[in-house]
Design a protein around this nucleic acid. Structure first.
Length: 423
RNA sequence: GCGGUGUUGGUGAAGUGGUUAACACGGCGGAUUGUGGUUCCGUUAUGCAAGAGUUCGAUCCUCUUAUACCGCCCCA
């Protein structure tokens, strides 16, 4: 048997309904926020991601799906959404033709070659947002408010927002140097992973789970002490806007993120749900004021986030959130024999086009089994079509709950259903 | 990339180095040929992830591979 590729999954059934519901909710929310829908290619030149995401990040060094196309070009399946959107922004010269700021949202599959576990796949879906052309802290706060409001609409409760600031690139460099200076004498006391981080990405040492209770960590320099005045002010404004929006958050000075392009605000939203594994960060993002320039665009500030759909769906499941999913059908039609099929099919089309969820017997079942099938499908009304009905054009319709049976002229059937089915 | 635990019908699962692989649910058919959801009867894995090895014999022991889950790294 051929099976699906490692780290991928199929969507169908109940899960499919729930997923569609959440997707539609996202669409609706982005409409209200007045964001513009973007869809960029699933593969792009490898260069884009190498430069965009960062040459030294794990995502690029060991997780991308790279291939050569038949024209011998180096291509990569997108591992994240931001780089593609930025490329599109630049290539379509949106800095000139669009109203500023450009507010973009996207949704689609991303690919990373990783070891799968629950909440982590090789093909996974992200919903994300990017705002170009506003340095104002309002943009940061608005971006953070989007996942928060989405979770609110869904009815998710165990959600925590953590924020931090890395400052502008000047502050960030100063801070990085200070950290290297600070950790240098202690390097042998840190865990193996931290030794690696020391060389590759010293900021991430602060995130370490092994050494987190080590006093060396507690006394490490804080980003806040290396911020320039403007960086400090920006962060304070973000916080005050969040307060105005009524959004709860915690400042976590050890929060740094893995992607190279972040400056100023960084944030994460985690699900603190019982039973959730280690993959509990649903959403992460921040400001990236240099990325557009890095990718050969004009100097343009940006801020955005990405949200993992699989993790969101898991959180919904673990919190037992009740989504309004339709599991009933309105009408189930039983033709008594082959002779009544034509008449029945006509009726099916009619009902469907009038907005009723309608099914028919496909397997020439006998009456009893048709009723069984109707029950399995949670049918509201069963319609039986036999010789009599075809001849007289009077439909026999049975309320599947009350068991009451009605005889109704075919022309009045739609009205009858409109009255009796609350949509 | 590293470490750990699993993988038995459509589903939940029991089980043993040796004739027909429990039990339950579900499906299909019938008792009841224009009215069901109860009950009863029949039927439903030449098969125990795939391959190789040990053995007289393996679903059970060994190895390899695949895959799922858990942890690390990293990330959403």
């Amino acid at each position: 048997m051929i099976q699906k590729a490692k780290g991928t999954y199929d969507v169908f059934g109940e899960y499919g309904k729930r997923l569609l519901y959440v997707e539609e909710l996202i669409e609706g929310l982005m409409e209200k926020y007045n964001y513009e829908y973007f869809r960029t290619p699933i593969f792009e030149s490898s260069n884009l991601f190498h430069r965009g995401v960062g040459e030294t990040t794990d995502i690029v060094t060991k997780e991308t799906y790279d291939f050569k196309d038949r024209g011998n070009r180096d291509m990569t399946l997108r591992p994240e959404g931001t780089a593609g959107i930025v490329r599109s922004y630049i290539e379509n010269k949106m800095y000139g033709s669009h109203t500023v700021p450009v507010k973009a949202w996207y949704y689609g599959p991303m690919f990373r070659y990783e070891r799968p576990q629950s909440g982590r796949f090789r093909e996974f879906y992200q919903f994300g947002v990017e705002v170009f052309g506003s340095e104002d802290a309002l943009a940061d706060a608005e971006v953070i408010s989007i996942p928060v409001n989405l979770f609110k609409l869904l009815g998710l409760k165990g959600i925590k927002v953590n924020i931090n600031t890395l400052g502008d690139s000047e502050s960030r460099t100063l801070y990085r140097d200070a950290l290297i200076e600070y950790f240098k004498p202690y390097i042998d006391e840190l865990c193996e992973d931290c030794k690696e981080r020391f060389l590759k990405n010293p900021l991430r040492i602060l995130d370490c789970k092994v050494d987190k209770d080590n006093p060396i960590m507690k006394n490490a320099p804080k980003t806040i002490d290396y911020l320039t005045e403007t960086s400090k002010k920006h962060f304070e404004e973000v916080r005050s806007y969040l307060d105005s929006m009524g959004i709860e958050y915690k400042v976590d000075t050890n929060l740094v993120r893995g992607l190279d392009y972040y400056t100023h605000t960084v944030f994460e939203v985690e699900a603190s749900v019982e039973g959730f594994g280690s993959q509990n960060v649903l959403c992460g993002g921040g400001r990236y004021d240099n990325l557009v320039e890095t990718l050969d665009g004009p100097k343009t500030s940006g801020v955005g986030f990405a949200l993992g759909m699989e993790r969101l769906m898991t959180a919904i499941e673990y919190e037992k959130v009740d989504l309004p999913i339709i599991n009933d059908i309105d009408c189930y039609i039983i033709p008594m024999s082959e002779k009544e099929k034509e008449y029945s099919l006509n009726l099916v089309m009619d009902l469907r086009l009038n907005g009723f969820i309608t099914e028919i017997d496909y397997n020439n079942r006998n009456l009893k089994n048709n009723f069984k099938q109707a029950d399995r499908l949670n049918t509201k009304f069963v319609i039986i079509i036999g010789e009599e009905e075809v001849k007289s054009n009077i439909i026999t319709i049975k309320d599947n709950k009350s068991k009451e049976e009605y005889k109704i002229e075919k022309e009045k059937l739609i009205d009858f259903l409109d009255e009796n089915i609350c949509k």
